[in-house]
Simulated scan of single mutants.
Amino acid sequence: MKKLFISLLTLLTGLSFSQELEKSLLWKISGNGLKQDSFLYGTIHITCDASLDKNTLNALEKTEQLCLELDMDDKSMQMQMMKHMMMKDGVKLSALLNEEDFKVVDAFLKKNLNMSAKMFDGFKPFIVTTMLYPKMLDCPFQSVESELMKISAEQKEEVFGLESVEDQMKVFDNISYEIQAAELVKMAKSDLQKDKDELSKMMKIYQSKDIEGMLKMMDDSDNKITSDNQDVLLTNRNKNWISKMSEIMMQKPTFFGVGAAHLAGEEGVIKLLRKKGYKVEAVQ
């Protein structure tokens, strides 16, 4: 009977540990020596509606600084990004693609960016993809990060980043250039339609505050950059952020804003903070 009880307890503990997180974008962080609460918010980098609800505005009011993935008010950020846009070792897009696919991409970029693929020949293909994000929307481009920064500026608070531009750009040196190029070809051949459909679905999941759904969508995506590289895109970065977040929160109550998919899952920021001893609660 004792063995049966222990087995049952172990099973229940396992079920509890793997339980999905609540549907919330805003989370309060307390305990583990913190004198004041900090907050964690899941953002979306491109959207039609970046408005913030009352709870989020209250959390921004209660905190004394904003920390995003990058220090986005750093005036040198654009210059730093330019340094890391090129593929390493002189790799060229024209060498990654056959002649026919390169022509398809060339026509596609001329149509959507008014520039030839030859101008981007040495660029990491994913960087070219990001330039096309506004074309995937049927509305004016908005950014949650920009909205958070606007509020912080009004409150005369500082903005920090959890990682450098170099750190973030190097992520795309650790994802096969061949895969990045292949995804750019797929985008060109569908003339953005598939990407528009996927972004529309993602925005609906985000609006429902389903952070676990955001992570599952990445898992299930046909895009090999996201579905096959979550260790590079999410997990490794999440783990690197935890010690930095701990140091920052100890100094001042902080509002953290990172991509919503970073929050979810067993290796997401929420559960990693809990493992570190913090109490992390959904703010509904």
Results as ranks from 00 to 15, higher is better:
Lys201Cys: 00
Phe5Trp: 13
Glu183Lys: 10
Lys201Arg: 07
Leu26Asp: 09
Met169Val: 11
Thr254Leu: 06
Glu99Lys: 15
Thr43Lys: 06
Met79Val: 07
Lys92Glu: 13
Leu184Cys: 02
Asp197Asn: 15
Asp138His: 01
Ile225Phe: 05
Gln80His: 14
Ile46Trp: 03
Ser116Lys: 13
Thr10Met: 13
Lys83His: 10
Lys62Asp: 00
Met245Pro: 01
Ser164Asn: 06
Glu266Ser: 08
Val283Asp: 15
Asp197Trp: 02
Ala153Lys: 11
Met149Gly: 02
Met119Gln: 15
Lys271Gly: 02
Ile270Trp: 02
Phe108Lys: 07
Asp138Arg: 01
Phe102Ile: 05
Gln80Leu: 15
Gln230Leu: 15
Gly122Ser: 13
Ser30Leu: 03
Leu132His: 05
Ile205Pro: 05
Lys275Ile: 02
Lys111Ser: 08
Val159Cys: 05
Asn240Trp: 05
Leu26Cys: 07
Ser7Ala: 15
Gln155Ala: 06
Leu60Glu: 00
Pro253Cys: 07
Ser16Leu: 15
Asp220Leu: 14
Ala153Gly: 06
Pro253Leu: 07
Phe126Arg: 11
Ser246Tyr: 06
Val91Gly: 10
Leu12His: 06
Leu263Cys: 03
Thr130Leu: 03
Gly257Arg: 01
Leu8His: 13
Phe39Gly: 07
Leu215Met: 14
Ser51Asn: 08
Tyr206Leu: 12
Asp191Gly: 10
Leu66Gly: 01
Phe17Trp: 11
Glu64Met: 09
Asp49Val: 06
Leu132Glu: 10
Leu34Asn: 13
Leu184Tyr: 02
Gly277Ala: 08
Lys196Tyr: 12
His45Thr: 07
Ile211Asp: 10
Gly42Leu: 03
Met214Ala: 14
Glu145Gly: 07
Lys135Gly: 05
Phe120Glu: 10
Asn229Glu: 14
Ser227Ala: 13
Leu113Ala: 02
Glu183Val: 05
Gly257Pro: 03
Asp101Leu: 04
Met214Asn: 07
Leu9Cys: 13
Met245Asn: 09
Asn58Met: 03
Gly257Ile: 04
Lys156Phe: 00
Ser7Met: 15
Phe120Met: 15
Thr129Pro: 01
Thr13Arg: 03
Asn236Glu: 14
Asp74Trp: 02
Leu233His: 07
Lys196Ile: 13
Leu66Gln: 01
His262Asn: 12
Met1His: 12
Ala95Leu: 09
Asp195Val: 02
Phe126Ser: 13
Lys186Asp: 09
Met218Ala: 13
Lys54Ser: 07
Met72Phe: 13
Glu154Val: 00
Phe123Val: 10
